[in-house]
C-alpha cells in the first residue's frame, strides 16, 4: 500500500459524495469518497490525512502529452525494478517518499523502463482512500 501524508485543502460535496483535495508538499491530489463532512467528522479543511492507494492501481507513463482526465499525477524517478514473470514492481522516488507501482512485465518492457528514468505515475481519484488517525 502506498501512503502519502498531507492536509485537506478543499472539499466539494453533494448529498452523498465528496471530492477532497489534499496537499502533499506543494502538489495537490484528489480523492472521491462516498462520505460528506456531515457523515465523516474528519473531513475538515486543514485536517491531516494520509492518502492510501494500492500499488496495482498506479499507472506509469513516459513522455505523457495531451489531455488526460486523471487528477493525480506524480513526477517520479525509477529507483529499482523487480521483474516477475507476469507482473513487476517498480519502486519510485517522489520527492524523497517512496512509492511502488505494480504493472505488467510487458508494460515495463514496452516503456523500456530503467533505473533513473523520469516517468509520470497516475492514480484515479476514486482509487484513493483517506485515512485519518484522531
Amino acid at each position: 500500500m502506498n501512503r502519502l501524508r498531507g492536509n485537506i485543502v478543499a472539499i466539494d460535496h453533494n448529498s452523498h459524495m465528496s471530492l477532497v483535495d489534499v496537499a502533499v508538499g506543494v502538489e495537490v491530489f484528489s480523492a472521491t469518497l462516498l462520505e460528506t463532512p456531515e457523515t465523516a467528522a474528519y473531513l475538515r479543511v486543514g485536517n491531516a490525512v494520509t492518502l492510501l492507494f494500492k500499488e496495482t492501481e498506479v499507472v506509469l507513463a513516459k513522455n505523457l502529452s495531451g489531455l488526460i482526465s486523471l487528477r493525480n499525477r506524480f513526477s517520479v524517478t525509477v529507483i529499482s525494478i523487480e521483474r516477475g514473470a507476469i507482473l513487476s514492481a517498480v519502486t519510485l522516488d517522489y520527492g524523497g517518499e517512496s512509492l511502488v507501482s505494480v504493472i505488467t512485465t510487458r508494460g515495463v518492457d514496452r516503456l523500456q523502463l530503467a533505473t533513473g528514468d523520469k516517468v509520470e505515475a497516475l492514480v484515479k481519484a476514486n482509487e484513493v482512500v483517506l485515512s485519518h488517525e484522531p
Binding site: 480523492a31 469518497l33 462516498l34 462520505e35 465523516a40 467528522a41 474528519y42 492510501l52 500499488e55 496495482t56 523487480e82 516477475g84 514473470a85 507476469i86 507482473l87 513487476s88 514492481a89 505494480v102 482512500v129 483517506l130 485515512s131 485519518h132 488517525e133 484522531p134
Partner: peptide, 23 residues
C-alpha cells in the same frame, strides 16, 4: 481503528498467504 474512508470493509482471518510474482 480511527477513520478510513473505505466503504467496502470486512474483517476476517487469514487462512493462507502465497507468493505470486512480486505480489
Amino acid at each position: 481503528g480511527g477513520q478510513t474512508s473505505g466503504k467496502f470493509a470486512f474483517t476476517g482471518h487469514i487462512l493462507e498467504i502465497e507468493a505470486m510474482d512480486v505480489l
